[in-house]
């Protein structure tokens, strides 16, 4: 705890932007055991059991003086999909943005506590923030392919711009597209602009882009909220297929979606974790009365 507190307090915005010159060193300085252990987690192969486990310990997040996430203790299991539900403003997006340390990119935002990925505290002062993002990928609400890049260049952008070796790139890009269930649809237009795809395809492109760097954890912040029902369904199916390769944490407004995709569901309210349990149980026989009220539509 003390170590992580120190690291966050001594890591203002400026430190979150490492000097490009020192960057290659710090990249290699982050040797998450996970990356080495499952370096071959490509295509549809599964990874070693237990790799990609995330534990939050007394996690607090703030925006200025607003206390957005309050002392959350929570574990995200490997090979499982965890959904986080709760009313707007309950801190669920903030919580997942702490896992890849994107939260602190916002002016005035900070976090303390621990986020432990496979035994390694991501808030440790020795950890390079850029390297964290390679181990913990993220997909956003609105599909955000890079507008100057083709479909394929988008997929491999993470690889290219983080210095992967050239020979690797084509294969890994292809595998990522296959993994995101997009290969068949785009194989004939890999060189067309990424923004020319439909909204659902764009979002799967973004998932492919996140998968290409082979993260251990994939955070999805309401990934279907800008999509139509058919595209949503495709992404939900994809989530089911991906969970053997990557630990998935999905924030959703849609309780039916949580029920469909998640093994475990977390209910948050006013920045606090109210209840966590197997999805079936949480939706049918929750322990907490507030959870029951929320899942039965009495508020939110």
């Amino acid at each position: 705890m003390d170590v992580s507190r120190d690291s966050t307090e001594s890591a203002p915005m400026s430190e979150a932007r490492p000097d490009p010159q020192t960057d290659p060193q710090t990249q290699s300085g982050f040797t998450a055991p996970t990356v080495a252990a499952s370096g071959s987690a490509q295509g549809s192969t599964t990874r070693d059991r237990g790799v990609g486990t995330v534990e939050l310990k007394q996690l607090n997040a703030y925006y200025g003086s607003t206390h957005a996430v309050r002392g959350v203790d929570l574990a995200f299991e490997s090979d499982k999909v965890t959904a986080i539900i709760g009313p707007s403003g309950c801190g669920k997006s903030t919580l997942v943005r702490c896992i890849n340390r994107m939260h602190e990119e916002i002016d005035g935002a900070r976090a303390d506590g621990q986020v432990v990925l496979d035994g390694l505290d991501l808030y440790d002062s020795r950890i390079d923030i850029v390297a964290v993002r390679r181990a913990v990928g993220m997909v956003f609400q609105k599909p955000n392919p890079f507008p100057t890049m083709s479909v394929f260049d988008n997929v491999v952008s993470g690889l290219r711009l983080t210095g992967a070796s050239r020979g690797d790139i084509d294969d890994r890009g292809r595998e990522a597209l296959v993994g995101a269930g997009l290969w068949e649809e785009v194989k004939d237009r890999l060189k067309a602009p990424g923004v020319g795809l439909s909204g659902g395809q764009q979002q799967r492109l973004c998932i492919a882009r996140a998968l290409a760097v082979e993260p251990e954890v994939l955070l999805m912040d309401e990934p279907c909220s800008a999509l139509d029902p058919v595209a949503t369904l495709k992404i939900e199916e994809l989530i089911g297929e991906l969970k053997q390769r990557v630990t998935i944490v999905i924030v959703t407004h849609n309780m039916q979606q949580a029920a469909r995709v998640a093994d475990t569901t977390v209910f948050m309210l006013d920045g606090e974790l109210i209840e966590v349990g197997p999805t079936d149980k949480l939706f049918t026989t929750p322990d907490d009365s507030r959870t029951e009220q929320y899942v039965t539509g009495k508020f939110g």
């Binding site: 490009p20 990119e105 956003f140 890079f146």
Partner: peptide, 12 residues
Amino acid sequence: TLKEAANALGIA
């Protein structure tokens, strides 16, 4: 959102 996407990919 583009900068955020790049950030989240671990691009310096």
